[in-house]
Amino acid sequence: MSTHAGTGPVMVASDLDRTLIYSANSMALGGADHLAPRMVVAEVYDAAPLSFMTRAAEELLEGIVERSVFVPVTTRTQAQFARVRLPGFGRGYAVTTNGAVLLQDGEPDADWSRHIQRSLGTECAPLSDVLDHLTGSAAVPAILRVRTAEDFFVYSIVDRQAMPDAYLEELAAWCQARGWTTSLQGRKLYCVPAPITKEAAVDEVRRRSGTGLLVAAGDSRLDAGILELADIAIRPAHGELDSDAFTGPNLTVTSAAGILAGEEILRFVDDVLAQASGAAPFAGAPAVQRGLRPASPAVL
């Protein structure tokens, strides 16, 4: 958890997929069809709608963007992120490619790019070594496809049922010895250079923008770092972190899962901003959790 919440504006750093926006397969809608919330399209791909959020969530996000330093934080590449249309798109900061790319008003920040390249050059084995390990003589049939993200990291589509018992531990040890990390999320296996993290990029945005309180949201293991960095954090009641029972003194868990969790996250953030802008000292995050406590009170 951050220890330097100050008097600057509130910063809101949020993951996108399965945190704020949802595919049709990840909505987890229950009940009768006529009770489903009204939705808006958040992403179009190949001329077809791909990702959605509730209409109420979009309206909440419009207000959040105007009252905070809102930073989308995603493992998506720049091209994949460019398909997403959210309030405030193209303004301010955004983090893509799991932290390898820092966008400012839609353009990659040259200073951050140089910092990442220096770190990769001195701390990590080259990406080609990892690709060779995943696809060469050490490859296993459970790895179905291997892709790279802007030549920064590698992700694979895997058959988890066919994965040898010891493979993930062996791969993690092999990568760690070369300055890389691994993360298995659903059917995707990520191999990422250790200097490339969402939390490092978020911390850089915080330093540059002079923000005070940091509020963060995310659902996956690659989001754990920004949740730990934040003064107040929230995650949905689904995803890898929910499976891990991930918790912390600053963390709240939504009561809803699926697309309604995205709306709940934004209501939570809206409440935090309302408290932070009030005349009284900030009294802590609103409680919408399943037995978990929000962050300790922070004074702005």
Rank of each mutant, 00 (worst) to 15 (best):
D159Y: 02
A172N: 07
F153I: 01
R147K: 14
S26L: 01
I21M: 01
G121C: 04
E58M: 10
A233H: 04
T77K: 08
M1Y: 00
D33E: 14
S51C: 14
P286E: 04
G186K: 02
T135V: 14
Q104L: 14
F152I: 03
V272N: 12
A48F: 08
P141F: 08
L292M: 10
C175H: 01
D271H: 13
A24G: 07
D219T: 04
L251H: 00
D270P: 05
A36Y: 15
E204M: 15
D159L: 02
R221Q: 13
P236N: 12
G291T: 00
D219G: 03
L241G: 01
E62Q: 11
V84W: 00
P37L: 08
E107P: 00
A276F: 13
Y22S: 11
D129H: 12
P37N: 08
A24Q: 14
P108S: 08
F282Q: 01
L20T: 04
Y167D: 08
D223Q: 10
G248K: 00
L102C: 12
W180S: 03
P37T: 07
D129A: 14
A217Y: 05
G186D: 03
A82I: 02
H115V: 07
R208C: 03
A280H: 13
E150R: 05
L229R: 15
E199A: 15
V69C: 14
F268S: 09
D231V: 02
L184K: 00
S137Q: 13
T122K: 13
L222M: 14
T74G: 11
E228Q: 13
A237C: 13
L134N: 03
G6L: 07
A42M: 07
Y155E: 00
E204P: 01
G106N: 07
S183C: 11
A201C: 10
Y45V: 13
T254N: 08
Q289C: 15
T254H: 08
A224C: 03
G99F: 14
T75C: 09
R76H: 08
S26G: 02
S2K: 12
V253P: 01
E150V: 05
T54S: 09
R85W: 05
S255E: 15
A166T: 11
E59S: 11
P9F: 01
P286S: 10
L134Y: 02
Q78H: 10
S277V: 02
D46P: 00
I116M: 13
Q289R: 14
G92W: 06
T74S: 13
A13H: 12
L120N: 09
A79R: 14
G88Q: 05
T75M: 07
S277H: 15
D165Q: 13
R38H: 05
D15A: 09
G6H: 15
E59A: 12
P9Q: 09
V10F: 06
S26Y: 02
A166Q: 10
R67C: 09
S113H: 11
T182V: 15
A194N: 04
G90N: 06
I265Q: 11
V40H: 01
T19V: 11
R145F: 10
A257F: 04
A173N: 09
A28M: 12
A162E: 14
A5Y: 11
I259H: 06
V41R: 03
N25G: 15
D244A: 15
S14H: 06
